[in-house]
């Protein structure tokens, strides 16, 4: 491939071809998902819809990775969804009943005598 290093591959996160090449040379990344996590290509607002195919081609041509080896992991939401749209259906879901920290009723180590039944154990989950 003769394309220059400063060619922008992921425009959402401004990841250049040079950065992807460097990642392939200097790390153990072998799949598009690994390259994504090390370079941020595909982590921006379009979540790889624009650049995923290009990154796959780069892996094939620069690294010998066969196309289709491992696709970009696609997760919902498949396009950006405002928080209030997500929240609108909250009451309709019977599962889950609450966060893991509230559902678990065990008494934490060293809190004998400490009545934190209301609180998630350890306060807010990080």
């Amino acid at each position: 491939m003769n394309s220059p290093d400063d060619l922008v591959i992921c425009r959402c996160e401004s990841v250049t071809l040079g950065k992807i090449r460097e990642c392939l040379k200097s790390s153990a990344a072998r799949t598009v998902n690994e390259v994504k996590k090390l370079t941020r290509a595909g982590m921006g607002v379009c979540q790889g819809r624009t650049c995923a195919r290009t990154v796959e081609l780069i892996l094939e041509r620069e690294d010998g990775t066969q196309l289709g080896t491992e696709p970009y992991q696609v997760r919902p939401p498949i396009r950006p969804v405002p928080l209030d749209d997500l929240a609108a259906g909250a009451e309709d879901f019977s599962e889950p009943t609450g966060p893991v920290s509230v559902v678990m009723l065990r008494k934490p180590l060293g809190t004998e005598g400490c009545d934190e039944t209301h609180a998630p154990k350890n306060g807010a989950r990080e």
């Binding site: 939401p77 928080l83 209030d84 879901f93």
Partner: peptide, 26 residues
Amino acid sequence: PGSMAKSAFTTIALFPSLSKRSVIRA
């Protein structure tokens, strides 16, 4: 999906100005 919905609900209740901000990934 219920976790996304309830988590979003809680987020807006805590910090209302985020209601129109979009989630791009879970």
